[in-house]
Design a binder for these strands. Structure first.
Length: 861
RNA sequence: GCGAAAGUGGCGGAAUUGGCAGACGCACCAGACUUAGGAUCUGGCGGGGAAACCCGUGGGGGUUCGAGUCCCCCCUUUCGCACCA
């Protein structure tokens, strides 16, 4: 007999208690957990236990958590709790990426000081996180906008400067008019727009800025990617592309005819020196310095080049650079190919970029698609100089033109290349490079796409760059003892007129520490990506006052065992962090090369097929979900809807479904937990011989469930199937509830089943788990200190197997046999089966395929 | 254009090694209990067919006793890269 659950208030109290009320349960436990801050604290670094550092990317305190955050933290929290239960000393911290533009924009709009606005948001979001039940060690909280943190940004900057890794230069920089500040290359989207303002094209400005020499580590950052086998291949590829290494040679072409002394040559960069006999022109970027020299004052040519410059700029803004039609202007001048002394025309073309290589190329139309397109358009000669060995024959007249291919295969062969003909492409590159070096017109080189990191920002809400400009001594660093350079408060923030700090005389006017004379303070602040490049080290000892970090503590915790965040940081944050780790290693304060051994990038949360956004009106607020269904349901749904690496389409009905499942679990334990409590004998596993078939089935299913959930944690993190497995088991428990109520079910097994359901749910639904754990009378109050359940493979094993029987590969029936049946027995039993005999009547059995434990296929003719 | 991932019921998704396609959940349908049901419980639920059966994992070929899974060709979607010389 089943009890009826009634929602109305006039029901007997014992029935009302069966109603799952997440608000009541979660508020109760929330209060208890609040009063015990040590609950989720990691042990100190001299702990003998094995450590596990699980980290989720710290949020920007924009005002409120969104579902993407919830999902990210639900994944990390499940893992952290699982590792705790597996006996690890777990570090699971959280902090705030608290400097940045939105605070300033809010200040302008609502006249709230950025600090106030930020800290208020931090307080609110922290409360949200706690309400969601995430198990963070708040004693290690890091807030990057506080002097106790940014002081160390400044200290690191001084070290960068000291080591020659920070320098100041005037150069063209990316300027976002909307942000009213400079952006690093990494912060410009592929379409040439700002990473924050996805539709605002970035402009170029000439400014004097601080740069960090990330390129000193280009080679190492690239090589290191190979060892990061715990990172998604996608992220590794993106980083490889971003660093963009290419090996090649610089070659000087002499300009034919009269030129200004000192400007006699044009240097090209090529990765294919072996094709130089096929070079039939030189192509310059419109902004190449030699252009003025070559075209002089010719008004037609000047106008032509101007057009090319404009086309390039327009293409960059349109974001579809490769699709722009190639276009060029012949300068009327020639250069000399240093290998065969041939005169080749010099052109200016819109497809040549000034900021890669040297801004000049040798054009080989037969072996480069772009050059080919250009040459065809302007009727330039296309000369084949390399072919695969098998077809190493020049094309004859009347034959179709050979395909334009780069031909880099080992068995390729040069033709029409003087003394280098008959060499393979690799041999030719080696010999020709050596020849060029010997004769002083070229050298081997490696080019990278990665540029130095421009970190100056003309904004207020960031770390002040600790530098002074003295009239006498020039650039002078702030002495370490004077750190931090405090960010002044009550600053008038506008988007006009450069850095807001420049308008604060008390800040700007300083004394030179070298000569005691008057000095001017640097008024730019640091890119906020500096803050996030090393914050995870600070967690290991967040309160340390005299140093950025303690090396011994970092050595214990690092590298991070599992880093979890969005793929949108694949380049920006994750390249800067990798750089910063190496910089700190070379300072001798850390000993790891990489910050994190494993990286997991979770999928986006979308709704109705689109990214959640205010403008689309499809934003789901975590607060609403918690109010309606509770934190546990919200969290479990975010894991159950799909696997964590995939895009998640938020469906409220799905949250309801999860809520229903948790209710069912709650009700089952509330009804039957007392039996459990009474069962003092907790060894439910030993008595299998005496169990009824039904009880044995529950026991088997229990062990299978533990196995499935455990394997999901150890493998692919498909928590959707973990949750499904527990659902199946709870359904199974319901199927024997009649027996349970009638007292016919073994109490020890029932107790074991309920205990393990709670333990299996603990990483996903911590509130419900705590409530039920207490209810069944468990004494170890902190579930995280309770060992993760182990399964017994023998008990998980099926005694009997229902073999699917196929005839010629089509399913025709089933035969139930003991699991251990010998192949021969299976064959006999199957062929003796009535249905099988009927189906093969009058046919010849060719063979019988028995797949042990799986299925049987009878092949007949 | 190049590269990667994906394509399975009305929907979200299961099915690590080739072995019962559609677990689990949502929605839907029927029933039970109810004054009531947006609660709960029971059952059903890929398509066709009265049934036996037949068809079914984007499309087309192939390998195999057996293919969602492996191979070849094509289509679509998403993401990343994109005059990088």
């Amino acid at each position: 007999m089943k009890e009826t659950i009634n929602m109305t208030a006039n029901q007997p109290p014992e029935q009302r208690e069966l109603r799952y009320e997440p608000q009541r349960i979660e508020e109760k436990w929330h209060a208890r957990w609040e009063s015990d801050p040590a609950l989720y604290a990691a042990e100190p670094h001299d702990s003998k236990r094995k450590k596990f550092y699980v980290l989720e990317m710290l949020p920007y305190p924009s005002g409120a958590l969104h579902m993407g955050h919830v999902r990210n933290y639900a994944i990390g929290d499940a893992l952290a709790r699982y590792m705790w239960m597996n006996g690890y000393n777990v570090l699971h911290p959280m902090g705030w990426d608290a400097f940045g533009l939105p605070a300033e924009n809010a200040a302008i709009k609502n006249s709230v000081p950025p600090k106030e606005w930020t800290l208020r948001n931090v307080a609110h979001m922290k409360a949200q996180m706690k309400r969601l039940g995430f198990a963070y060690d708040w004693s290690r909280e890091v807030t990057t906008c506080l002097p106790e943190y940014y002081k160390w940004n400044q200290w690191f900057f001084l070290k960068l400067y000291e080591k020659g890794l920070a320098y100041r230069k005037k150069s063209k920089v990316n300027w976002c008019p909307e942000c009213a500040t400079v952006l690093a290359n990494e912060q410009v989207l592929p379409n040439g727009c700002c990473w924050r303002h996805e539709e605002t094209p970035v402009q170029q400005r000439e400014l004097e800025q601080w740069f960090v020499r990330t390129t000193n580590y280009s080679e190492e950052l690239l090589a290191g990617i190979e060892k990061l086998d715990g990172w998604p291949e996608k992220v590794r590829t993106m980083q490889r592309n971003w660093i963009g290494r290419s090996e090649g040679a610089l070659l000087d072409f002499k300009i034919d005819g009269a030129v200004t002394p000192g400007k006699e040559t044009i240097t090209v960069f090529t990765t294919r020196i072996d094709t130089i006999y096929g070079a039939t022109s030189i192509q310059l970027a419109p902004e190449h310095p030699a252009v003025a020299e070559l075209i002089g004052n010719d008004p037609g040519l000047l106008a032509g080049v101007e057009d090319l410059t404009r086309e390039q700029a327009r293409a960059r803004e349109a974001g579809d650079v490769a699709a722009v039609e190639k276009h060029g202007v012949f300068t009327g001048r020639y250069a000399i190919n240093p290998f065969n002394q041939e005169r080749v025309p010099i052109w200016v073309a819109n497809y040549i970029l000034m900021d890669y290589g040297t801004g000049a190329i040798m054009s080989v139309p037969a072996h480069d698609e772009r050059d080919h397109e250009f040459a065809q358009k302007y009727g330039l000669e296309i000369r084949v100089v390399i072919l695969p060995r098998r077809t190493a024959e020049p094309p004859r007249n009347g034959e179709p033109e050979p395909p334009v291919l780069p031909y880099t295969e080992k068995d390729s062969l040069l033709i029409n290349s003087g003394e280098y003909s008959e060499l393979s492409n690799q041999e030719a590159i080696a010999k020709m490079s050596a020849y060029a070096e010997q004769h002083g017109f070229g050298k081997r080189t490696v080019t990278y796409r990665l540029k130095d990191w421009g970190i100056s920002r003309q904004r207020y809400w960031g770390t002040p760059i600790p530098m002074l400009y003295c009239e006498k001594c020039g650039v002078v660093p702030v002495p370490e003892k004077d750190l931090p350079v405090l960010l002044p408060e009550n600053v008038d923030i506008t988007l006009q007129g450069g850095s807001p700090l420049g308008r604060v005389p008390e800040f700007v006017n300083a004394t030179c520490p070298k000569c005691g004379g008057t000095a001017r303070r640097e008024t730019d602040t640091m890119d906020t990506f500096v803050d996030s490049s090393w914050y995870f080290y600070r967690y290991t000892n967040a309160k340390l006052a005299d140093r950025a970090l303690d090396t011994a503590t970092v050595d214990y915790w690092f590298p991070i065992d599992q880093y979890i965040g969005g793929v949108e940081h694949a380049i920006l944050h994750l390249i800067y962090s990798r750089f910063w780790t190496r910089f700190m290693r070379d300072l001798g304060i850390v000993h790891n090369d990489e910050p994190a051994t494993r990286l997991f990038t979770q999928g986006m949360v979308i709704k109705d097929g689109a990214k959640m956004s205010k403008s689309k009106g499809n934003v789901v607020s975590p607060d609403d979900m918690v109010a309606q269904f509770g934190a546990d349901s919200t969290r479990v749904y975010s894991l159950f809807a799909t696997s964590p690496d995939r895009e998640l389409d938020w469906q409220e009905a799905g949250v309801e479904g999860v809520h229903r499942f948790l209710s069912r679990t709650y009700r089952f334990v509330m009804r039957n937990g007392a039996t459990s409590r009474a069962a003092q004998n907790k060894d439910g596993t030993g008595a299998s011989a005496r169990l009824s078939a039904k009880a044995r089935q529950i026991q088997r299913k229990l062990h299978q469930t533990i196995k499935r959930v455990t394997e999901d944690f150890q493998g692919r993190w498909h928590f959707n199937t973990s949750v499904a497995a527990v659902m199946e088991f709870v359904n199974e428990l319901y199927s024997v509830e009649d027996e349970v109520v009638a007292g016919k079910f073994p109490p020890a097994l029932l107790a074991e089943a309920q205990r393990n359901v709670i333990l299996l749910l603990a990483p996903f639904a911590p509130y419900l788990a705590a409530e039920l754990w207490e209810y069944i009378g468990e004494t170890e109050k902190n579930l995280l200190r309770h060992p993760w359940p182990a399964y017994d493979p023998a008990l998980a094993k099926e005694d009997e197997i229902t073999f699917p029987i196929q005839i010629n590969g089509k399913l025709r029936g089933h035969v139930v046999l003991p699991a251990e049946s010998a192949e021969e027995t299976v064959r006999e039993r199957v062929l003796a089966d009535e249905k099988v005999r009927a189906a093969i009547e009058g046919k010849q059995v060719v063979k019988v395929i028995v797949v042990p434990g799986k299925l049987v296929n009878v092949v007949v003719k």
